[in-house]
Amino acid sequence: MASALIHMPASARPGEIIEVRALIAHTMETGFRPGPDGKPLPRDIIRKFECRYNGKQVISAELHPAMSANPYIAFFIKATTSGPLEFTWTGDNSFAQTETRQLQVQP
């Protein structure tokens, strides 16, 4: 399992715009680089990132082989109600990882 780092405020006021930053430790092998035996290493990339806030999709990104290792994605959302943010990364070789963080919206 890959290691995910997510930075976001634990709480916000209603209507406040907050920054969310997500990074996942993953090598992102393109499938074109030769291995020690001279044959190309098999492709192993994260192909999609998605974040849902209270079950509603707020961002979806399709990633490609040119994406760097340990992909970092930052975005802004408007805090409306308290609830979970669910982050999902999916990729080659049946890779899938989901992390959840709670956001408290307080007046």
Score class of each variant (00 low, 15 high):
77 I>T: 11
107 P>T: 05
43 R>L: 04
15 G>V: 12
32 F>M: 07
9 P>G: 03
22 A>C: 11
100 T>F: 07
50 E>Y: 00
58 V>P: 05
75 F>S: 14
5 L>P: 00
40 P>A: 02
66 A>Y: 15
59 I>V: 12
21 R>L: 09
106 Q>T: 10
93 N>H: 08
14 P>T: 11
68 S>P: 06
21 R>K: 13
66 A>Q: 14
20 V>W: 01
20 V>Y: 07
35 G>K: 01
51 C>K: 08
73 I>S: 06
76 F>K: 13
66 A>M: 15
57 Q>E: 15
59 I>L: 12
64 H>P: 01
35 G>M: 02
33 R>K: 13
69 A>H: 07
10 A>G: 06
37 D>V: 01
38 G>V: 06
47 R>K: 09
75 F>P: 09
96 A>L: 02
104 Q>Y: 04
63 L>D: 03
61 A>V: 11
35 G>R: 04
103 L>E: 09
65 P>D: 03
75 F>N: 08
30 T>M: 10
55 G>E: 06
85 L>K: 12
68 S>N: 14
50 E>D: 06
77 I>W: 12
3 S>D: 08
47 R>F: 00
23 L>D: 03
35 G>N: 00
76 F>M: 11
9 P>A: 04
31 G>W: 07
4 A>R: 02
13 R>M: 08
107 P>E: 10
101 R>S: 08
80 T>Q: 03
33 R>L: 05
103 L>R: 06
28 M>N: 08
7 H>L: 08
5 L>A: 07
28 M>A: 10
105 V>I: 10
37 D>R: 04
63 L>Q: 08
55 G>F: 07
32 F>C: 03
48 K>F: 01
24 I>V: 13
100 T>L: 11
63 L>C: 15
75 F>E: 04
101 R>V: 15
58 V>E: 11
47 R>V: 00
86 E>D: 02
59 I>M: 07
52 R>C: 02
97 Q>K: 09
67 M>S: 05
72 Y>H: 13
69 A>K: 12
44 D>C: 11
83 G>S: 13
56 K>I: 14
49 F>H: 15
38 G>Y: 03
37 D>L: 01
66 A>K: 08
44 D>W: 12
54 N>G: 10
29 E>F: 03
47 R>H: 00
12 A>N: 07
107 P>N: 11
39 K>V: 05
82 S>W: 05
65 P>A: 08
77 I>K: 14
18 I>K: 01
22 A>V: 13
103 L>K: 09
42 P>N: 09
38 G>T: 03
76 F>P: 01
104 Q>M: 11
84 P>C: 09
8 M>G: 14
79 A>Q: 13
97 Q>I: 04
99 E>R: 11
51 C>A: 14
72 Y>W: 12
57 Q>D: 05
90 T>D: 13
35 G>E: 00
59 I>K: 05
75 F>D: 09
23 L>G: 02
86 E>N: 00
56 K>E: 13
53 Y>H: 15
61 A>W: 02
87 F>C: 00
52 R>S: 05
